[in-house]
Amino acid sequence: MFRIKIPRYWRHKDFRYRLNAWRCNHCGEVHFFKPLVCRKCRSREFNQVSLPDTGKLLAYTVVRSPPEGFEAQSPYIVGIVELDDGTRILSQITDCHPEELKKGMRVEATLRKIREDDEDKIIAYCYKFRPTV
């Protein structure tokens, strides 16, 4: 029922692969997906920015009741990361067990498989964060 829609996945690869986002020229608000109007100040001018790939973990949890498409990975960790420029980003946290995580610990971005519907279907990649190596 819930499948990767290829054009939708492909359209946003700049953000998902490289954390490329938009920053409002007027108020500085960061938008992950191409905005036409700033949600905060309603300005219509944006600059593309490359978000920092490091930050600290503000909070984390473990998804134990996964949505369709994520069953094979469950349980997996989801966290809120505050990037070094202050942007908060929701992300899977990888390469660790929950008990190794601590609030405030340094994390860095990496690229991982986020989902694949079947062995014969497309593989979707996305940023995830992991404890800094």
Binding site: Q73, T94, L111, R112, K113, I114, K128
Partner: peptide, 13 residues
């Protein structure tokens, strides 16, 4: 590899 890794992700790393 971890569950979310493949040749492409290793190559990117």
């Amino acid at each position: 590899t971890g569950l979310d890794e493949d040749t492409v992700t290793l190559a990117v790393e």
